[in-house]
Simulated assay, not measured.
Amino acid sequence: MSSILLVNHLSKIYQTGPKSFTVLDDISFEIEPGSSCAIVGPSGSGKTTLLGLCAGLDTASSGNVILDGQAIDSLNEDERASVRNHSVGFIFQSFNLLPTLTALENVMVPLELLGRKNIKQTAKDLLEKVGLGDRMNHYATQLSGGEQQRVSIARAFANNPKILFADEPTGNLDEETGATIEKLLFDLNAEQGTTLVLVTHDNELAQKTDRIIKLKGGKLHEDTQLKTIA
C-alpha cells in the first residue's frame, strides 16, 4: 500500500541572529491511506511545527515531505496551495472561521476556490451532517465554541480531502463538547475514508487513533501502532 504521507529526515531550524534553534531533528515516518495517527508530546516538542510541514504550510530546513505523491518541498507556494486545496483538510484549535461570513458561507469558501458546482447545496449537506442544519445562517460570533468547531469540521471535509490535519481539535472545548466533536470527527473520517493526522495533548483522544507518534525534544521518541490497518 503506497503512503499518503511520507516524511524523510525532516528537520526545522530557526535562526535568530547568530543563534540557531532546532525545533525538529531528523524526523522520518510514513502514514497509510485511511489510517488515523496522533502526534503527541510535551509543549515545545515540535508537534504543531511538524503538522505545518506535513501540510505544506511551511518549508523544512532539510529533509522532505511527500504528500499524496507530491514532493511538496520542491513546489513553490502557489503549487503547494494547489495541493492543499485538492488533497488536504484542516481543523484548528481556534476554529479559524471568517467572522463576517455565516456558517454556510464559511463552508462554501473552499468549494468556491475549487470552482465546484452546486456549492451551496454541498455546504448545506455538510452542515446537516454535523448537526447544524438550523444554524447555517448564523455568524461565527453567534455560535458556541462547539458549534464553531462543527462548522470548521464541515469546512475541512468540503473538498473531499484525502488527508485531514487537526491541531488540538478539542483544545478549546469543555469535556462534554469535546467528546461530541471527537465522535463527529472520527465518524465523518471513517465515512469519507479520509486519513486523519491530529496533534493533541489529550491522551484519551490519542488512544482512539490507529497509531501514536510521540515527539520529545524535537526528535521522534516513540512510534506505537495501536490497531492494524485493514
Rank of each mutant, 00 (worst) to 15 (best):
T141W: 11
K162W: 09
A123T: 04
E128N: 07
N118L: 07
G133P: 05
F165C: 01
L126Q: 11
A158M: 11
M136P: 03
L143I: 07
Q148V: 04
Q142G: 11
F165A: 10
D125W: 08
D134R: 07
K124E: 15
T122M: 09
K120T: 14
T122D: 12
A154G: 03
Q142F: 12
A158P: 10
E128G: 05
N160Y: 14
T141N: 15
I163R: 13
I119T: 12
K129I: 05
N137P: 03
P161M: 07
A166P: 07
R150D: 00
A166G: 11
A154L: 12
A123S: 13
I153A: 00
G146Q: 05
K120Q: 15
D134H: 14
K162C: 01
F165D: 08
D167H: 14
K129H: 09
Q121D: 12
I153S: 00
D125T: 15
S152L: 05
G146N: 03
H138N: 11
S144P: 10
V151W: 06
Q121L: 12
Q149A: 04
L132G: 05
L164E: 03
I153C: 01
I119M: 07
A154H: 04
K124L: 13
P161W: 03
S144E: 01
D134N: 15
G146P: 00
M136Q: 12
F165N: 08
Q121W: 06
V130W: 00
R150N: 09
S152E: 10
E147V: 13
Q148W: 01
G133T: 10
I163K: 09
F165T: 08
A166I: 09
N118C: 04
I119D: 04
D167G: 12
P161V: 02
Q121H: 13
A166F: 01
A123C: 08
A166V: 05
K124G: 06
G146L: 04
D125C: 06
